[in-house]
Design a protein around this nucleic acid. Structure first.
Length: 981
RNA sequence: GCGCGAGUGGCGGAAUUGGCAGACGCGCAGGAUUCAGGUUCCUGUGCCCGAAAGGGUGUGGGGGUUCAAGUCCCCCCUCGCGCACCA
C-alpha cells in the first residue's frame, strides 16, 4: 500500500520533513526578528528604515496545562497569515506572542500538589511554545514576555504606581500627577476640611485628603466576596446569576476594605472614543451597555417632618415630574432608618387620597407591626433572595410603605415613601420618584399597592385607540405609556410644561429645577470603579506598604516587589459567607514586616528615617498583566522604562483601513469575544491613563478588533446526559453509537467539557501543519463560528498535493518548472487571481483567497498534464501567493525555483493591468427577466451594440418573432433584458 | 423584555453599487488507470418533469418597490450571542 506511493509525493511525512527544516531555518536565520527603528532592538533597523510599521496582535493565552486543541490557534493562524502578507507588502510587521501566566489554575495545582506555581507555569509555557512553533507562526521570539517574569511585573507595578500617584482633573478631562493636586489645593480650587488652607492642615489630614483623590484608592465598600474562591471579585467577573465566572461559586455582597481603580472617571472617554475604533458594532454596544451612561436630572424631594432633609432621586424623565405620586428607596438606602416613621399615619390620609389605602400600602410586611418592624422584615426578605431568585422569579413587585411622606416639589403634593427591591442601591442615588403613568415598573407597583396614577403625557391617538384608553384617566390604561407625547397636567405658578413634547419638557423643567435649586442635570453610569485586589498568591504584589495611618506607595527605585517564596499557597476558602478574606501572603511574616527608609513626599511624616512597615498582602487581579502587555512587546528588554516613547511613537504611525490616521496603537487585534467587556475595557482604561501622563502617544490601544468565531465540533450525549468521547463514536445509517449504545449528537464549542477536542498534534501527524493552517482558514469567514470536520481536511490537503505535483515530479523529484512563456489564458487567470487574492487577504477573507488559489492551481494541473511543464512566470507568483497561508511548502517550492533566501520579505505579486482587461465579455440576455441566451460583445460596447448582438442571437431572434417589445433594458457589460408586452 | 448577529444544495460556504444564485471544497454518481481496494486524473451533481433538447421552480415565511431582489422596504417565524427591575 504505502510502498506504492510515489517517493516524492506530498504526504504527511514529506510535509513534516519540510516543515521541520524551515522552522529550524527561520530560527537560525532570525527571520522573524522585527527591528525597531530606534532604541533597543534597532541593530538591524537599516533593513526597515523606510518601511511603514504595522502591529498585528493576538490576545495572548493563559498557558494551560492541558495543551492546545485545534480551536485555539484559529486566531493565531489568521494573524500570522495577515502578518506574513503585510511583510510581503513592504511593512515592518511586529508580531509576537507572550503569556498571560498569573492566575488560578497554576495556583490551584500548587495547592493540590505542592508544586510551585512558577514551575508549573514555566513547564506549560514551554509546551505551548512547542505546539505553536509547530504551526509555523512567524513570531519575534525576543518580544513575548510572560506576565510572571519579574522583569515584566516590575513594570506592571510601576504602572500601578503611576495610577496611584495621579488624580482625575474633571475640568481638564484627564489624569494629572498627584503633585499638581496639591497646587490646586493651595490655589483654593478644591475645598479642604473646614476650609482650612491646605498648608495649615495637619500632615495626616493632608495625606487623607490627597489619598481621597487618587486614581487608585482603598475603599470600604460593598464588594463581591466569593468565599468558595477565598477572594473578592470585580463586577465583571460575576455572572448574571450571582456566581463566580471561574468555578461557579456563590458570590456575596459584603462591605470590605479593598483597592479600587477609578475607572468611572474615564467613563465618558471610554464611551465616546469607541466611535474612532474599527470594532464590530456588537462589541462596541456591549461596552456601551456596560458603561451604561444615562442622562437626566437629579431632583431633591423634601421629606415631611424633616426640615433640613431632602432625598435625592435620579430620573431620565424629569418631564414627568408632575406625575410622581410616590417615592421608592432601595431597601438598604442609608436614609431609610432616618425617615421611617414610628407609627402608621392615621385617618388624615383620606384627606389626600380618594379612599384610605393604608392597608394596601402596609401589605404583608407591615400588616401587624409598626413601620420599623415592617422595614426590618422586608429587608430580611429582600436580602434572603439570591440574585438568581430575583432573576427567575416573575418580576412581581414587592415592597412596603415606611410610614413617611415626601413632597413632590412641583405641586407640593404629599407622596408616600416605600422601600422595594426593584430599586437598586447600586444605581443612580438608590432612590426614585415613581411616575406610574409613564414607567412600566412603577405602573405595576402602583396597581399592586393601589397608588394613584396621574397621566402627565398625553399618549398618541393610535395608542389610545388601540387600547381603548381615556387620555385623562389612567384607570382605563392597560399599561404605562412610555412613548413620546405632549405634556399635560404639568403646570404650577412658576413653570408650565403643558403642550410641550417630551424633549422640550425635559429641558424646560430641568431649567426650572436649577433656578429653584431643586435639582440639576445629571449623568449616571452603570460602570463602577474597578475592584483591584485579590486574596491570591499567584499574582503581582502591590508596591504598597502601610504605616499605622494607611497606605504608602513605594518609590520607583524599590521595584520590583518580588513575590516571596512560601510553602502554603492556599487561600482560606470556606462555605461561610461571613468568613473574612485572608490572603496567603499574610503568612509570609518576614516578608510582610519590612524596615525601609522612604523618601516620602512629607505628608504624614513617614519620610524621615528607617521605620518598620507592613506590606500589602493582596495581589493584583489577572487582568493587570494583560492590560499593557502589547506595550512591552514594543520594547521588551528595556530596563530603564516601560517602553521608550520614541519606539511607541514609531509603531503608532500609520493609517486605518480607510486611510485616515489611526488613533489606536495596534493595527489589528484578534481574539475571543469573551473579553468584550473585561480585558478590553480595562486595557483601554490603563492606556488612557498612560496617555494622560504622556507615556504613550496614542489615545487607544487597539485600532481594529476582530473577534474570531469559535470552532464547534460534534459532541455526543448518552442516555444519562453525560458527554462521551467524540473520538470513539461510530456512525451507522445516520445514527451514532458509543460502545454499542446509541447516543445523541449536538454541536458545541470545542473543548474539554464537551469531550470533543481534536489535538493539533494528530492533524500534523496525518496531514502536516500547512494543511491544518489552510484548513482552518478555508472553513469560513474568520469572525463566524464554524464546525470542525476532520473529514473535510482532505480537500485542502489534496490542493497542496496538486500544487506540489505541478512543481515537482512525484517519481523523480525533478522540477517541472520551465522558463517558457505561459499562454494568454493562463496569464489572464494568473493576474485575475493575483488581483482577487490581494483584495481578499487585505480584508481577512482568507477562505475566498484560498478558493481563488484552488482555481488557478486546478487550471495549472490540466496545463501541466497537457504540456508537461509549469511556466516559471506562473510558478513564482503562485509560490509567493501561497506563502502567507502555507509558508513551509511555499518556502520549499521557492527554494527549488533557485532562490537562496527566505521568501518572507519578497514582494507579494502585483497584477498586471494589461491582463485584467478582457477584450470580449459574455453578457446574459433575458426575456422578461429570464435568462434565455448569452452573447459575446466587445468590452466597452454601447447599449445599441448590446441590443443588436442580442437580437442577432438565433434563439432570442426566434423568441422575439411576433412579440411586442415594450422595453429594452441594457446595462453594458452586465445584462440585456427584453420586456415584452 | 431590550440590543446585536444569522437563516442560501446532502454538508462547510461564495455572490462590489440590485444585474447569470450556488464560486471553491467535502460528499455523492459515472468513467479512465488498477487483478482488486486505495491513490491519481476526467466528467456530472440545487430541486421537479424529461431519454435528450428543453421547461418549471428555487436563497426561513408572507407582502411590497423594480425591467430585474439572496441583496432595498414592511410584517412574521426560527436559531445563536449579549444585557436584563439601570429609574
Amino acid at each position: 500500500m504505502a510502498d506504492e506511493v510515489p517517493p516524492q509525493r506530498y504526504t504527511a511525512a514529506l510535509a513534516n520533513e519540510i516543515e521541520h527544516k524551515w522552522q529550524d531555518r527561520w530560527d537560525d536565520q532570525h527571520v522573524f526578528e522585527t527591528p525597531n527603528r530606534t532604541g533597543l532592538l534597532s541593530e538591524d533597523a537599516h533593513h526597515v528604515a523606510d518601511r511603514p510599521h504595522m502591529f498585528v496582535l493576538d490576545m495572548f493565552p493563559y498557558p494551560s496545562g492541558v495543551g492546545l486543541h485545534v480551536g485555539h490557534p484559529l486566531g493565531y493562524i489568521a494573524t500570522d497569515v495577515y502578518a506574513r502578507f503585510q511583510r510581503m507588502n513592504g511593512f515592518n510587521v511586529l508580531h509576537a506572542m507572550g503569556y498571560d501566566a498569573f492566575g488560578l489554575p497554576a495556583e490551584q495545582y500548587a495547592v493540590q500538589t505542592g508544586t510551585h506555581p512558577r514551575e508549573t507555569t514555566e513547564a506549560n509555557i514551554a509546551n505551548m511554545k512547542r505546539q505553536l512553533r509547530a504551526l509555523g507562526l512567524g513570531h519575534d521570539p525576543r518580544r513575548g514576555p510572560a506576565t510572571t517574569d519579574v522583569q515584566y511585573y516590575r513594570w506592571t507595578q510601576w504602572i500601578f504606581l503611576q495610577i496611584y500617584n495621579s488624580w482625575y482633573d474633571d475640568d481638564a478631562q484627564r489624569a494629572r500627577p498627584i503633585g499638581t493636586l496639591v497646587q490646586e489645593f493651595r490655589a483654593g480650587r478644591f475645598p479642604t476640611p473646614d476650609d482650612i488652607p491646605f498648608d495649615e492642615l495637619e500632615d495626616l489630614d493632608q495625606r487623607r485628603l490627597v489619598d481621597s483623590y487618587r486614581l487608585a484608592y482603598e475603599a470600604y465598600a460593598p464588594v463581591n466576596w466569593c468565599p468558595g474562591l477565598g477572594t473578592v471579585l470585580a463586577n465583571e467577573e460575576v455572572t448574571g446569576d450571582g456566581r463566580s465566572e471561574r468555578g461557579n461559586f456563590p458570590v456575596y455582597r459584603r462591605p470590605l476594605k479593598q483597592w479600587m481603580l477609578r475607572i468611572t472617571s474615564y467613563a465618558d472617554r471610554l464611551l465616546d472614543d469607541l466611535e474612532s475604533l474599527d470594532w464590530s458594532d456588537s462589541i462596541k454596544q456591549m461596552q456601551r451597555n456596560w458603561i451604561g451612561r444615562s442622562t437626566g436630572a437629579s431632583v431633591r424631594f423634601p421629606v415631611e417632618g424633616h426640615e433640613d432633609l431632602d432625598i435625592e432621586v435620579f430620573t431620565t424623565r424629569p418631564d414627568t415630574l408632575f406625575g410622581a405620586t410616590y417615592m421608592v428607596l432601595a431597601p438598604e438606602h442609608p436614609l431609610v432608618d432616618v425617615v421611617t416613621a414610628n407609627q402608621w399615619p392615621d385617618d388624615e390620609l383620606s384627606n389626600d387620597f380618594a379612599s384610605n389605602p393604608l392597608d394596601a400600602w402596609k401589605g404583608v410586611f407591615g400588616a401587624t407591626d409598626p413601620p420599623p418592624d415592617a422595614v426590618r422584615r422586608y429587608r430580611d426578605f429582600a436580602a434572603a433572595k439570591t440574585d438568581l431568585e430575583r432573576q427567575t422569579e416573575t418580576k412581581e413587585k414587592t415592597g412596603v410603605f415606611i410610614g413617611a411622606f415626601a413632597i413632590n416639589p412641583t405641586n407640593n403634593e404629599r407622596i408616600p415613601i416605600f422601600i422595594a427591591d426593584y430599586v437598586l442601591m447600586g444605581y443612580g442615588t438608590g432612590a426614585i420618584m415613581a411616575v406610574p403613568a409613564h414607567d412600566e415598573r412603577d405602573f405595576e407597583f402602583a396597581r399592586e399597592f393601589e397608588l394613584p396614577i396621574v397621566p402627565v403625557i398625553r399618549p398618541g391617538d393610535e395608542w389610545l385607540t388601540e387600547h381603548n384608553a381615556d387620555p385623562d384617566d389612567a384607570a382605563t390604561w392597560p399599561e404605562a405609556y412610555v412613548g413620546d407625547g405632549v405634556a399635560q397636567n404639568s403646570a404650577n405658578e412658576e413653570v408650565s410644561l403643558d403642550g410641550l413634547r417630551v424633549d422640550d419638557a425635559k429641558r424646560v423643567v430641568t431649567e426650572w429645577l436649577e433656578r429653584a435649586e431643586l435639582g440639576r442635570p445629571t449623568v449616571t453610569y452603570k460602570l463602577r470603579d474597578w475592584l483591584f485586589s485579590r486574596q491570591r498568591y499567584w499574582g503581582e504584589p502591590f508596591p504598597i506598604v502601610y504605616d499605622d495611618e494607611g497606605p504608602i506607595a513605594l518609590p520607583d527605585e524599590m521595584l520590583p516587589v518580588v513575590l516571596p517564596e512560601i510553602s502554603d499557597f492556599e487561600p482560606v476558602t470556606s462555605d461561610d459567607p461571613d468568613a473574612l478574606p485572608e490572603p496567603p501572603l499574610a503568612r509570609a511574616a518576614d516578608w510582610v514586616e519590612v524596615d525601609l527608609e522612604l523618601p516620602g513626599p512629607g505628608w504624614g511624616g513617614y519620610g524621615e528615617g528607617v521605620h518598620t512597615y507592613r506590606r500589602e498582602t493582596n495581589t493584583m487581579p489577572q487582568w493587570a498583566g494583560s492590560c499593557w502587555y502589547y506595550l512591552r512587546y514594543l520594547d521588551p528588554t528595556n530596563e530603564d522604562t516601560m517602553v521608550d516613547p520614541q519606539i511607541e511613537a514609531t509603531w503608532a504611525e500609520g493609517t486605518r483601513v480607510d486611510g485616515s490616521p489611526k488613533v489606536g496603537l495596534v493595527d489589528l487585534y484578534v481574539g475571543g469575544v469573551e473579553h468584550a467587556v473585561l480585558h478590553l475595557l480595562y486595557a483601554r482604561f490603563w492606556h488612557k491613563v498612560l496617555f494622560d501622563l504622556a507615556y504613550v502617544s496614542t489615545i487607544e490601544p487597539f485600532q481594529r478588533l476582530v473577534n474570531q468565531g469559535y470552532i464547534l465540533a460534534a459532541a455526543f450525549v448518552d442516555g444519562r446526559g453525560t458527554y462521551v468521547d467524540a473520538e470513539q463514536i461510530e456512525e451507522r445509517a445516520g445514527k451514532y453509537y458509543f460502545e454499542g449504545k446509541e447516543v445523541k449528537r449536538e454541536f458545541g464549542k470545542m473543548g474539554k467539557s464537551l469531550r470533543n477536542a481534536v489535538a493539533p498534534d494528530d492533524i500534523y501527524r496525518d496531514y502536516g501543519a500547512d494543511t491544518l493552517r489552510l484548513y482552518e482558514m478555508f472553513m469560513g469567514p474568520l469572525d463566524k463560528e464554524r464546525p470542525w470536520s476532520t473529514a473535510d481536511i482532505v480537500g485542502v490537503h489534496r490542493f497542496l498535493q496538486r500544487l506540489w505535483r505541478n512543481f515537482v515530479d512525484e517519481n523523480t523529484g525533478e522540477s517541472r518548472v520551465a522558463d517558457a512563456p505561459a499562454d494568454d489564458e493562463t496569464r489572464r487567470l494568473l493576474h485575475r487571481t493575483i488581483d482577487a487574492v490581494r483584495t481578499d487577504m487585505a480584508e481577512l477573507s482568507f477562505n475566498t483567497a484560498i478558493a481563488r488559489l484552488f482555481e488557478l492551481n486546478n487550471h495549472l494541473t490540466a496545463l501541466v498534464q497537457r504540456t508537461g511543464a509549469l511556466p516559471l512566470e506562473v510558478a513564482s507568483p503562485l509560490a509567493l501567493m501561497v506563502a502567507p497561508l502555507a509558508p513551509h511548502v511555499a518556502e520549499e517550492l521557492w527554494s527549488r525555483l533557485g532562490h537562496d533566501d527566505t521568501l518572507t520579505y519578497e514582494s507579494f505579486p502585483t497584477a498586471d493591468q494589461q491582463w485584467l482587461v478582457e477584450e470580449r465579455v459574455e453578457v446574459p440576455v433575458q426575456i422578461n427577466s429570464k435568462v434565455r441566451a448569452r452573447v459575446e460583445v466587445a468590452v466597452g460596447a454601447d447599449a445599441a451594440a448590446h441590443e443588436a448582438a442580442a437580437r442577432a442571437e438565433p434563439r432570442i431572434a426566434e423568441m422575439l418573432v411576433g412579440a411586442t417589445v415594450r422595453q429594452v433594458k441594457v446595462v453594458p457589460g452586465k445584462i440585456v433584458n427584453f420586456v415584452l408586452a
